[in-house]
Design a binder for these strands. Sequence first.
DNA 1: TGCTGAAAACGAATATTCTTCGGGAGGAAA
DNA 2: TTTCCTCCCGAAGAATATTCGTTTTCAGCA
Lengths: 151, 151
Amino acid sequence: MLDEVDVHILDLLQTETRLSNLELSQRVSLSAPATHARVKRLEQDGYIDSYTAILNQEKLGYDLLCTIFMSTSIHQTQQINELERHLSAMPEVMECYCMTGAFDYMLKTIHRDRKELEAFIRELNQLGVAQLQTSIVLREVKASTVLPLRK
Amino acid sequence: MLDEVDVHILDLLQTETRLSNLELSQRVSLSAPATHARVKRLEQDGYIDSYTAILNQEKLGYDLLCTIFMSTSIHQTQQINELERHLSAMPEVMECYCMTGAFDYMLKTIHRDRKELEAFIRELNQLGVAQLQTSIVLREVKASTVLPLRK
DNA sequence: TGCTGAAAACGAATATTCTTCGGGAGGAAA
DNA sequence: TTTCCTCCCGAAGAATATTCGTTTTCAGCA
């Protein structure tokens, strides 16, 4: 379904997203229209979820990045769905995963300061949460969104 | 340093990155050149770290998303730096944070299958790692890169 | 070996967009 | 009021995306 050129295009789009279609076409040794058609196809076939600008958290005043492990006391499907909808709608929740291990969920959350974090945790506790374990990121060693396509 | 329009632009760039400069300018009620100049300024001042395409992990054959908590047996600055350089260079490591809590680091890693995960963990163990605790993501409830600018 | 049809690529042309100007409006300080 | 500075606008030129018709490529098959 994907040939070598497609993978090359995806990899360039991951890292050098701002390349013009013309430059992109030169990198993959294809004409501009052919490259353009491929990108459109990759978008339509769902290989590209979205394009996004990654903002600088520090410059914008976000000092606390947290991981929160969480167990819930509810187990009915409908209530679970409700809980997950709530979590998804909270803007401080950047990521939320259902996990193996001792806890049901892991969240990655972001907050401006300690005060906001406390308010958030209080909010969480009102959603049928049985257990919370919060850790704080002291330093970012690596933060990437790039898949290892050409390893 | 940032006025209301700047924040509006940043927020639009986060979510509707593919907007043309013309459309963007209409959304924020400014002329195209003025909007363009602001975006350039925001980029140069470091408010925007990067632009990126988010690829679909599933479609590209990545079945295992993991969080790995890790402690190290080394404590000399130089060796720590070396370790972190190694971790950063591993393409499977998408994120790496220095954390509070029982472990020194948390990693978010991605792998095609169980076999690749095993090879990766073996590789990790050769880097001066004292303890590893790996959990696997069963389901993605939310995965976003959007900062809550306008909460 | 050569024919055929489908898929994909190419080059040229058009439409759209970006980007750079000069000039002017608005506000602060003297 | 005058001056200075910042920021905006509209118009124009440059660059880019996008469409179109034609040509090439190549697998399947006689």
